[in-house]
C-alpha cells in the first residue's frame, strides 16, 4: 500500500471505531517501512481530530469517542517501539494538569493523546492539581513545557497563579507555558503572561511542538 493509502486507512479505522483494523494498518505501515510518527500524526490523529469535531457538533457521543481513542491506543502500541527509537528522544517532556479546584479532564486527555503521538513525553498529573505540585513535577522530570487546563471561570485564576509562582521562584524563563479550556482565550493567555494558548486539542499539538522548538 502507498503512504497515502495507509494514512487514509488509519484515519478511517479510527472514525469507524475499528480497533482490529487500526492495529492491522499499523503493522502494515511498519512492514512498508513508513515513518511511524507520520502515520500517527497524519493518519490516526487525523481520525481522532475528525471524531472530536463530530463530538463538538453532537454527531458523535462520548462512548464512541472513548472507543475510538482505545483503537488509537492499540495502534499506537504497535508503533511505539519504532517511535521511541526515532522521534521521542529528540523532542522533549511536558507536564500537563487540570488546575486545582477543577475536576474536568476529558479535553485534557484528548489533547494528551494527540500530543504524545508527536513524540512528546507527556507527564499527566491528572485533575485538581495545586500549582506547587505542577512546578515540583516540572522540576523533577526536567520538562520544557507546562500545560494547564481550566474549564471554569472560577478556576482559571490558578493558571495565573502558576505564572506568578514561577516568576517568584525565578523559574519562569526555564519553562514554556500553554493554557487551554473552554473559558480560556488568547487574550487570557496574554493577560497572565502564558507563552501560548490552544483552542482545542488539534491546535494544542501544533502549539506544543512550536514551544518545544523555541
Amino acid at each position: 500500500m502507498s503512504l497515502e493509502s495507509i494514512l487514509a486507512a488509519a484515519k478511517q479505522a479510527i472514525i469507524d471505531i475499528d480497533e482490529d483494523k487500526a492495529v492491522c494498518v499499523a503493522k502494515e505501515a511498519l512492514e512498508e517501512g513508513l515513518n511511524p510518527v507520520q502515520v500517527l500524526s497524519e493518519g490516526y490523529s487525523a481520525g481522532i481530530r475528525e471524531i472530536g469535531e463530530l463530538f463538538s457538533r453532537g454527531e458523535v457521543f462520548l462512548p464512541e469517542m472513548i472507543l475510538s481513542a482505545e483503537a488509537m491506543k492499540a495502534a499506537t502500541a504497535v508503533l511505539e517501539s519504532a517511535i521511541t527509537g526515532a522521534a521521542a528522544e529528540k523532542i522533549g517532556k511536558m507536564i500537563f494538569a487540570t488546575v486545582e479546584g477543577d475536576v474536568h479532564d476529558i479535553g485534557k486527555s484528548i489533547a494528551i493523546a494527540l500530543i504524545q503521538t508527536q513524540g512528546v513525553e507527556v507527564i499527566d498529573l491528572g485533575r485538581d492539581v495545586p500549582v506547587d505540585k505542577i512546578i515540583e513535577a516540572a522540576e523533577e522530570h526536567g520538562a520544557k513545557v507546562i500545560g494547564t487546563s481550566a474549564l471554569l471561570t472560577t478556576t482559571m485564576p490558578n493558571q495565573e497563579k502558576l505564572e506568578k509562582v514561577l516568576r517568584e521562584r525565578g523559574l519562569r524563563d526555564k519553562y514554556k507555558t500553554i493554557v487551554g479550556g473552554a473559558p480560556c482565550t488568547q487574550r487570557w493567555a496574554d493577560k497572565i503572561g502564558a507563552d501560548a494558548y490552544a483552542e482545542d486539542a488539534g491546535e494544542g499539538v501544533t502549539k506544543v511542538l512550536e514551544l518545544m522548538k523555541s
Binding site: R57, G58, E59, V60, F61, L62, P63, E64
Partner: peptide, 21 residues
Amino acid sequence: EFVLGMHGKIEYDGAKIAGLY
C-alpha cells in the same frame, strides 16, 4: 445547545436524545 451523549443510545418517544438541538 445540544444534548451531550454521555450514554449515546437513550431514546424518548422513539427519538435518540443525544445530539438533539
